[in-house]
């Protein structure tokens, strides 16, 4: 029987680990079992909660996600000002889980089909040698605007270095750019899983 030399092992083990020792693919999307393809025309995005400690992290991700959703063109996205107006009119407290009534009002006053809620779990920029590495993690939920029930639930967590292609190429070094890239991934994932806009 032929035995491998130490040099061969030193080459094979890292190769094996590189190819097969990957974790779960992110973003991860969980769908309600009752939901098949979902067609969404008008979407309202509720302000995201910030659990990360990064100053204004919730607003940052909110605005980046809103921008990405508008860019997708399939959806008609309600502006932040109009969403905030309903929140103020309904006296919904920040951080409080909106009740069924709140969603009814959203449908009646804005005519939305779906509502996106989210929370930022991690957002930071860490100095790594001479580089700055941003880290972002968040949960996003798509709710049926008629009843507020969650129909999609997505988790995404990335570091700037996750996008490295070769040497320094591809590395993302700002929280904003990383958030933009991650939001884009989530929207692509939703599209792949069957969430469709209606303006295509």
């Amino acid at each position: 029987m032929r035995s491998f030399k130490p040099f061969t092992w030193a080459f094979l083990v890292p190769l094996f680990l590189t190819l097969f020792a990957c974790g779960k693919r992110l973003p991860v999307t969980y769908k309600s079992p009752l939901v098949g393809k979902t067609r969404v025309c008008k979407v309202a995005i509720l302000p995201f909660s910030n659990e990360s400690g990064y100053p204004m992290g919730g607003v940052l991700l909110y605005r980046v996600f809103l921008a990405e959703m508008v860019t997708k063109r399939g959806y008609q996205v309600v502006g932040e000002g109009d969403v905030r107006k309903v929140i103020i009119q309904q006296r919904s407290m920040p951080g409080q889980t909106p009740d069924y009534e709140f969603y009814k009002v959203l449908v009646e006053s804005l005519g939305v089909d779906a509502v996106v809620t989210g929370r930022v779990i991690q957002m930071e920029e860490v100095r790594k040698g001479r580089e700055i590495e941003p880290k972002v993690a968040f949960w996003l939920e798509v709710r049926d605007a008629r009843n507020g029930k969650v129909i999609w639930n997505t988790y995404n967590r990335k570091r700037g270095g996750d996008y490295r292609k070769l040497m320094h190429f591809g590395v993302i070094s700002t929280v904003t750019a990383l958030a933009r890239r991650m939001c884009d991934e989530v929207l692509r994932d939703w599209e792949r899983e069957g969430l469709e806009g209606c303006e295509k």
Partner: peptide
């Protein structure tokens, strides 16, 4: 009152 366009951009010195 429609959001018709949006864009995000960010750069660091790095």
């Amino acid at each position: 009152n429609r959001l018709v366009w949006s864009r995000t951009s960010a750069y660091s010195r790095w």
